[in-house]
Design a protein around this nucleic acid. Structure first.
Lengths: 193, 193
DNA sequence: GTCTATAACTTGATAGAC
DNA sequence: GTCTATCAAGTTATAGAC
């Protein structure tokens, strides 16, 4: 685990909710579905959480903060820009593997957040993307990267680490580290000979 | 348009449905929402379509067939494998730009398809991915591509063309063709110098 | 083909006993 | 803190007048 979380009753609800939201979507998951998975009646869950919307907010906000604090950490190191970008790619993949359900929810169901959480989430994501883009820009300026279109490079990287969610199963042929190596090779040196 | 479709009443319902499903998800869109957009009462739509599920099926199936027939066409040409892969990337991007709502639905809401359509859709996607993977494999065997991990390359490419949905707006700084060029450069030659 | 009315059901959330 | 019972609102879909 990259982050340590209490494993009380409330956290159990959040963890099971993330799994169900990933499988069936926020709108496709009822509180009764969730209650069955948690092992209590739907009404009882309201002693631990305020609403279905709050569950979504807690999941999305935790993931957003995780990404932002990891970016801040990497920005402070004195590695090359290429190494910083590689480190970020590795962190994305590792978070997806270790906390995939919550990351999927933050990737897909954030749009169902009520205001003002929706606006806050979108702003946090924008800030993150801006910080990531600046690493690529500086890498180009420093001669470490090709002069690619920065937005295209950024979203190609972010998308490439997203599919891990759809594809990777622990115990597949590749270990997490091998997977990271292969994706970094593909993104940094490309397919062509 | 890559495909020509009749613009009767039924098709209007399908087109508006695709837009709403993309915006609010299949579960988050009610038949009343859709009816308002189409300009009739919810009950009246049932003279044109059988059910909400049928709408989803018609959208997903059309997109699946489009991809599969495009792949078959490209496979038959005698271009190099590199050129075949590039052509497929261009077709993905163009379909996303010209028919983005339906492509988004086929990408995200296919999981709400009822059986047996769900199984059929998953099989069609699997077949498509297999055909695409074979082009990459043969390209490696022919010495046109680096000996990358084929699955990683395939899903990196498929993901890279997916984000166009989240990002591209007509009238943005880039034309469709420039966007295709940039993405192909990023995927084929990579970020590193 | 379009409408109004409504059947049959599911939804998120609450009240109150224990 | 968990339960049963329930509410108010929303869901897909159909019946039947016009």
């Amino acid at each position: 685990m990259l982050t340590t979380r209490k494993t009380n009753r409330r956290q159990l609800i959040l963890d099971e909710a993330a799994k169900l939201f990933k499988q069936k979507g926020f709108g496709g998951t009822s509180m009764r579905d969730l209650a069955r998975e948690v092992g209590m009646e739907a009404a009882s869950m309201y002693n631990h959480i305020k609403s279905k919307d709050e569950i979504l907010d807690l999941i999305c906000t935790r993931i957003a903060h995780t990404y932002i604090s990891q970016l801040a950490e990497i920005e402070q190191t004195d590695a090359s820009y290429a190494d910083k970008v590689k480190a970020l790619i590795r962190l994305h993949i590792r978070l997806m593997i270790e906390d995939g359900a919550a990351v999927s929810v933050a990737n897909h169901d954030w749009k169902y957040l009520p205001e003002p959480q929706l606006t806050e989430f979108k702003q946090a994501r924008k800030d993150y993307e801006k910080g990531f883009a600046q690493l690529i820009e500086k890498g180009i300026a420093a001669g470490e990267f090709q002069p690619v279109n920065v937005s295209v490079a950024l979203f190609t990287i972010l998308s490439a680490v997203r599919w891990v969610e759809l594809w990777y199963r622990p115990g597949r042929e590749l270990s997490a580290e091998e997977l990271e190596d292969h994706i970094i090779t593909m993104l940094l040196t490309g397919l062509a000979k």
